[in-house]
Simulated scan of single mutants.
Amino acid sequence: MSKSLLVALLSLSCCAAFAASKPCDELKAEIAARLDEKGVKGYEITAVENDQVGDAKVIGSCDGGTKKLTYVRK
């Protein structure tokens, strides 16, 4: 494995760990702002317990990894 690939993988794992520790409301607001900026309409982002995800698309993890943010088109 090359050094640059290893550095990239370590950077991504670091960022994922940081995002998982964010409060759900903060991460939800950040993601919603990015979607709104891109002109996405008719969606719902919800924070749910890990075992309550169901068929929704998971777009993030928050509250120390105890919850998932799900995305559903309305």
Rank of each mutant, 00 (worst) to 15 (best):
M1N: 13
M1W: 04
S2G: 15
S2M: 13
S2V: 10
S2N: 10
S2Q: 06
S4W: 07
L5Y: 05
L5C: 10
L5W: 08
L6N: 12
L6E: 11
L6M: 10
L6W: 05
L6C: 07
L6T: 13
V7C: 10
V7H: 09
A8F: 08
A8I: 12
L9C: 13
L9D: 11
L10A: 14
S11A: 15
S11I: 05
S11Y: 03
L12R: 13
S13P: 04
S13E: 08
C14L: 15
C15N: 08
C15H: 14
C15Q: 12
C15E: 01
A16K: 09
A17L: 00
A17R: 07
A17K: 09
A17S: 14
F18T: 14
F18D: 14
F18R: 15
A19Y: 02
A20N: 05
S21P: 01
S21C: 09
S21T: 08
K22Y: 05
K22D: 08
K22C: 08
K22S: 12
P23C: 09
P23D: 11
C24M: 06
D25P: 05
D25R: 07
E26I: 15
E26G: 13
E26V: 15
K28S: 09
K28H: 01
A29Y: 00
E30A: 07
I31N: 06
I31Q: 04
A32E: 10
A32I: 03
A32G: 03
A33C: 06
L35K: 06
L35G: 04
D36G: 12
E37Y: 08
E37L: 11
K38P: 04
K38L: 12
G39P: 01
G39H: 02
G39R: 04
V40T: 11
K41D: 13
K41M: 07
K41E: 12
K41N: 14
G42L: 06
G42S: 07
G42H: 06
Y43M: 00
Y43T: 03
E44W: 05
E44G: 13
I45K: 00
I45N: 01
T46H: 03
V48W: 01
V48E: 03
V48H: 03
E49N: 14
E49F: 07
N50Y: 08
N50H: 08
D51W: 06
D51E: 10
Q52T: 13
V53F: 07
V53I: 07
G54A: 03
G54W: 06
G54R: 02
D55C: 06
A56L: 02
A56R: 00
A56K: 01
K57Q: 13
K57E: 09
K57F: 10
V58P: 05
V58K: 04
V58I: 11
I59Q: 02
I59T: 02
G60R: 00
S61Q: 00
S61P: 07
S61W: 00
S61T: 08
S61I: 08
C62R: 01
C62G: 02
G64N: 05
G64M: 04
G64S: 07
G65P: 03
G65S: 06
T66E: 12
T66V: 09
T66W: 01
T66R: 11
K67W: 00
K67G: 05
K68E: 01
K68W: 01
L69Q: 02
L69E: 00
L69N: 01
T70H: 01
T70L: 04
Y71G: 06
V72F: 01
R73E: 11
R73Y: 09
R73D: 14
R73S: 13
K74T: 12
